[in-house]
Design a protein around this nucleic acid. Structure first.
Length: 453
RNA sequence: GUGGAUGUAGUUCAGUUGGUUAGAACGCUGGAUUGUGGUUCCAGAGGUCGCCGGUUCAAAUCCGGUCUUCCACCCCA
């Protein structure tokens, strides 16, 4: 081998067996989305950098993959700028496109651009890859798929409730036991206001989001380090240590932050949402988690995060309400809410649980062993008939050695093999072999089709 | 972006204080077995030791750089 080929850091090839499993996840998710009246859209892999830049914070801008302009772009850069060697400044001159970083911002752009053709509320789903120039780790890639569902142009909390239903439905079908954590950005804002640090809400939420991971003491230390006053941190303690049922938590927190306008609004929103949820028959556990903060700064209302109860892997789905996402593109006061399913992590959970279905529509169900030209002629009509009946079937191309053909079927995990040689042709029948048990039976073509379809 | 580890047949890994022709297992190909795979036995193919440079009579082994993968931080799905 001369040069070993390779793929870029953080990207992956998917083999047939992996694709069968990935498609199972995507198909399941899509089925549920459709069931709730959502419709698909797709947007380009690349967007104008002006669409992408500044939407994900400083960190996000660094993690954008930028695409070089076509043509002789360097000659258009002035001598001065070139010698300055400032990457940021130079980037704006030599690159004006980038790969999408998530599906939400392109969706917002799409909505603004197509506002006259869209009937609101607009319920869409979108399953496409996104790219981040992050340093890869286990379960973190530079190219990965997101499965977004959003409804935009409706303030109703029924949307939030339906999203929880969708989450419940998807994971019920995938046989994953889940815990849905819900919080509300307005409650967090109310807390920040109450403790006298209203403008520090980002720092506070980023810190308390880590409560699970690093513990109360370190969270407090981080807030102090970020410059939150000691008295404010002190006031925060009873909230962080809040225990009890959802309604108990809401009642208690209301006593603390009910006086603030935004806090009261958040409490009432959560009460309404949980009332809806009480009337649904949900399999998943749902709880109010006041420490749930999620990093994204554009959430303004409900925040969701879903975790597997059996497999420790971080969140497998998350999202929330954003009141003014399209505002940055010149279309203010349009509220949306949505969640995103993390296909890669769901895949890992299903692998660890070993709960992918054994049978798949994408696997060959039966293979004809090829004995030669005369036998081919005998088999081909039945092969066509099987396919007409929706049975995935193939005939081995060419009359290779039996061992090679059987081995092919075995490696491809084809559950049935049909043998038809001289003796079968004479009896006008087929030998059907079950590759799992090794059992064989002599059947007519009609019986064959009946057994396999 | 910061810090740490890693890289040897297709895959998982051995390879001593630098020293002849770099090994194993699994996988692959062929045979034992002209209509029976997943078990067994035999034989065979397959490596610029990640890449570039340096030290040395001599480098898979030591040094520097670079890339990959992994781990932690940051952030996130």
């Amino acid at each position: 081998m001369a040069q070993k080929p390779s793929i870029p850091k953080g990207t992956r090839d998917f083999s047939p067996s992996q694709m069968v499993r990935r498609n199972y996840i995507f198909d399941t998710i899509k089925d549920v989305f459709r069931l709730y009246g959502f419709q698909p859209i797709e947007t380009p892999a690349m967007e104008n950098l002006s669409t992408l830049m500044g939407k994900y914070g400083e960190e996000g801008d660094k993690l954008l993959f930028k695409i070089l302009n076509s043509g002789d772009f360097v000659s258009k850069v002035s001598e001065d700028l070139y010698n300055e060697k400032n990457s940021n400044k130079l980037t704006t001159k030599i690159s004006e496109k980038g790969l999408r970083y998530d599906l939400t911002v392109p969706f917002a752009r799409y909505v603004v651009q197509n506002r006259n053709d869209i009937t609101f509320p607009f319920k869409r789903y979108q399953i496409q890859p996104v790219w981040r120039a992050d340093r890869p780790q286990k379960g973190r890639y530079r190219e990965f798929y997101q499965c977004d569902v959003d409804v935009i142009g409706s303030n109703s909390l029924l949307n939030e409730a339906e999203l929880v239903q969708i989450i419940d439905d998807v994971f019920k079908r995938l046989q994953i036991n889940t815990l849905v954590k819900i919080n509300n950005r307005k409650i967090l804002a109310g807390i920040a206001e109450t403790i006298g640090e209203a403008d520090r809400i980002i720092d506070i939420t980023v810190a308390i989001d880590k409560l699970d991971k690093i513990g109360l003491e370190k969270v407090n230390a981080e807030m102090i380090a970020k410059g939150i006053s000691a008295t404010a941190v002190e006031k925060l303690q009873p909230i962080l240590e809040l225990q009890g049922t959802t309604s108990e938590k809401l009642t208690q927190i209301e006593k603390v932050i009910g006086a603030t306008e935004v806090g009261a609004k958040g409490i009432s929103e959560m009460k309404t949402l949980f009332e809806y949820l009480d009337n649904f028959e949900l399999e998943t556990e749902v709880e109010l988690d006041l420490t749930l903060a999620r990093g994204l700064n554009y959430y303004t209302g409900a925040i969701f995060e879903v975790k597997s109860k059996d497999i420790q892997i971080g969140s497998i789905c998350g999202g929330g309400r954003y009141d003014d996402l399209t505002g940055i593109f010149g279309m203010p006061n349009v509220s949306g809410v949505g969640v995103s399913f993390g296909a890669e992590r769901i895949y890992d959970v299903l692998v660890q649980q070993d709960s992918f279905p054994k049978e798949s529509l994408e696997i060959t169900k039966v293979m004809f062993v090829n004995f030669g030209e005369k036998e081919e002629v005998y088999c081909l009509p039945v092969l066509a008939e099987l396919r007409k009946n929706g049975v995935n079937a193939e005939i081995f191309p060419g009359s290779s050695k039996m061992k090679k053909q059987m081995n092919y079927a075995n490696r491809k995990e084809i559950p049935f093999v049909i043998l038809a040689g001289d003796s079968e042709i004479e009896a006008n029948k087929f030998t059907l072999k079950n590759m799992d048990s090794g059992e064989q039976q002599l059947v007519t073509s009609k019986e064959l089709i009946k057994i396999l379809s």
